[in-house]
Simulated assay, not measured.
Amino acid sequence: MRKNASATAAWLVLAAVFVLGGCAAKRPAQPKEVIQKISLIPVMPPASLYTKNDLFIPFAPALPVHLGSAAANRNKSAEFNQKMESTRLTLGSKLTSAIQEELRSAGFEVTVLNNVERHKDDPEDIDYAKLPTRDAVLHVWFSDVSMYSSRMSSVYLPRMNVSTHLLPRPESEDAVYSETLYYGADSRGDKYWSLPSDPKFSYPSFNDMIDRADDVAQGYDAGVQAIAKRLSRELRK
């Protein structure tokens, strides 16, 4: 009985060794891919700018207020977009330059890709595999640029939301970083994706905002710099 028990124990020990060895063989440590060189797709300017005021008016008839608010927002957006057209056209190049500068300061080698082939109907639908690079590809685009007044306030704040996509190689199907960064109106305090705007870039009314168009442009410039710095910090991780 003792011999049988000893033999059984020995077999159990050997079996455990083989199982553990097999598990270790199946799950080798995967080294993290180190990205040093980045090809940056030039950032396009936002297609348009707009304003939106969602201020809630208690005890007012819902449908007439909604229709009136929608019409007012359209009219104000058209006026705002016209006033800020020169600012809109520069935002893409400004963000491209800011990202390039911040990434280089963080130790990356950055090349801006020129003459990227884009679809007319969807400029951000890019075939990465056709890009003239073998380095990592960083695609950045504006998902929203506006001045926004929330339901609980008549104050307008800058809103600049930027989406990012980093591929380790052009032909890769999976991104190593994919995130949207929120500056201004959609920020939510101290979070990695959240970038609150300076209170000086807030406006108590639409007319005040239009009269201070140069200040609004400075607020967007501040957003560009803040987003570039935060993106660099996140990629450095």
Rank of each mutant, 00 (worst) to 15 (best):
P123C: 05
D127C: 08
V145L: 11
K3I: 13
P158W: 01
S143R: 08
R2A: 12
Y182P: 06
G184F: 03
S86R: 12
R188W: 07
D121P: 08
S163P: 07
R151D: 09
S187A: 10
E101S: 15
G107R: 02
V65N: 14
V224P: 05
A25H: 09
K200M: 10
L91W: 07
P46Y: 04
Q100I: 05
S194H: 03
V162H: 09
L91F: 04
E117S: 12
A16Q: 07
L131Q: 01
V145T: 14
I57V: 15
P158N: 01
L167K: 11
T90H: 03
L95D: 03
A129V: 02
G184M: 04
V155I: 13
S6W: 12
K237Q: 11
V17W: 07
H66L: 14
R159G: 06
E234G: 09
F142T: 00
D211M: 13
M1I: 09
I57Y: 12
R151M: 11
G21D: 00
H66D: 09
D211G: 09
C23N: 10
K191C: 02
V145Q: 04
L63C: 07
I41R: 06
V176L: 10
F56S: 08
M209I: 00
A47L: 13
R236S: 14
G92I: 00
V116W: 09
G92N: 05
S77G: 05
V140E: 03
Q225Y: 07
S86T: 10
R27A: 13
L103S: 01
G22L: 10
Q30D: 08
V162F: 04
V162N: 08
P170R: 00
L14C: 03
A60P: 01
F201D: 01
F206P: 04
P42H: 04
K32Y: 07
R230A: 05
A98L: 01
L181W: 01
C23R: 09
L235G: 01
E79G: 07
D54G: 03
L103V: 05
Q36M: 10
Q218S: 13
K52P: 04
A136T: 00
A25G: 07
R104I: 10
D190V: 03
A62I: 13
A129G: 01
E124M: 11
V13S: 05
V224N: 02
R104F: 07
L12S: 12
S105R: 11
R233W: 08
K3R: 14
P204D: 08
A136E: 00
K52T: 12
G21T: 00
S153V: 03
I38T: 10
E171Q: 14
K83L: 05
D125R: 15
L12W: 03
A213E: 04
L14E: 06
F108K: 05
K200T: 06
G21S: 04
A175K: 04
I38V: 12
K26A: 15
R88W: 06
F56N: 07
V224E: 02
E109F: 08
K130P: 03
P42E: 07
P45S: 09
L12T: 13
L157P: 02
K76N: 15
F201N: 02
T90A: 14
N73W: 02
V110K: 09
D135T: 01
L166F: 01
V176A: 08
D144W: 07
V65E: 10
L166A: 06
S39G: 05
M84Y: 02
M44S: 14
R233L: 11
V155W: 11
Y50I: 05
I35Q: 05
M152L: 12
L138F: 11
Y128Q: 10
